[in-house]
Design a protein around this nucleic acid. Structure first.
Lengths: 138, 138
DNA sequence: CATTTACTCTATATAATTTGTAGGTTTTAT
DNA sequence: ATAAAACCTACAAATTATATAGAGTAAATG
């Protein structure tokens, strides 16, 4: 399951995508619309900004806005940014690889090999689906 | 990512699958082989038994053994049993459905609709792959 | 039939992670 | 100048995951 952080990120991105041509949007507007704690959302939007998805304007009249095309934001990137690995095991993660503690030899671990296939299939769909798909469904 | 519980469950099932014709296997044998806490594994095996995957024998010469064919144990069932939902959102879970707190109307939520597609694609692979596939890779 | 073995069950303790909060700093428009 | 709003760091609270404890039950065996 997605963490709330990631779920909120998707809600915020969707909101910003829908109001793309209205300039900077207040955190508060999004947090009120989606019933998300203002401060919690603040942290999330900041992360999205640092990762290059959002731009912001400080001071009066400030706020956040999308700086990427919705179709250029696959679900996989948002999930990885906020939730971490998509793979089901650390030893098959592309972006967050770690060997499994309890495994002597990952080369001869049948679980490892199967989970690589699962990862690849999961990635197919998560890389294909983008913010645009979410927007199109609303 | 899978919890340790689920990962250990897969290791244990694999071990039991490999030693299918050796009768009851001690918890201890599995926990030592895979460096898993004996007591923790005990709980896991008990859950797997209650769910109908394993049989057990008490007393001297006792232990656990597989009572299902490895090809009849899809990854999805083990993950659901020990980790819960496979879906990325509660509102699209088939087995653990709950409405999202922050959503007024799930019918017009674009995220909901996309996540249904993601769930279906994920399930395809997790229902197709079974314990047999893990065993075949070792 | 007593003893040992090993699974069963429930409860609790510990650790880790997630979620949320606080409070000050910086920037900008007016 | 002042007010508004993002920025930043650190911490607090809540939840979940991991692990442990200990008494109970059933079976085998001599």
């Amino acid at each position: 399951m997605l963490s709330k952080k990631t779920k909120y990120a998707f809600h915020a991105l969707t909101y910003l995508g829908k109001h793309k041509d209205q300039g900077a949007i207040l955190i508060q507007e999004i947090s009120e619309f989606h019933n998300i704690s203002h401060k919690f959302l603040e942290n999330i939007l900041l992360e999205l900004k640092k990762a290059g998805f959002l731009g912001s304007k400080k001071g009066k009249g400030g706020g956040y806005y999308l700086i990427k095309e919705p179709k250029e934001i696959p679900l996989s990137r948002i999930i990885r940014l906020l939730d971490g690995p998509i793979a089901l095991l650390p030893c098959v993660s592309l972006n967050y690889y770690e060997p499994c503690e309890e495994c002597e030899n990952q080369e001869q671990c049948g679980l490892n090999k199967v989970m690589i296939e699962v990862r690849d299939e999961t990635l197919k769909i998560l890389e294909m689906k983008t913010l645009q798909d979410i927007l199109s469904n609303e």
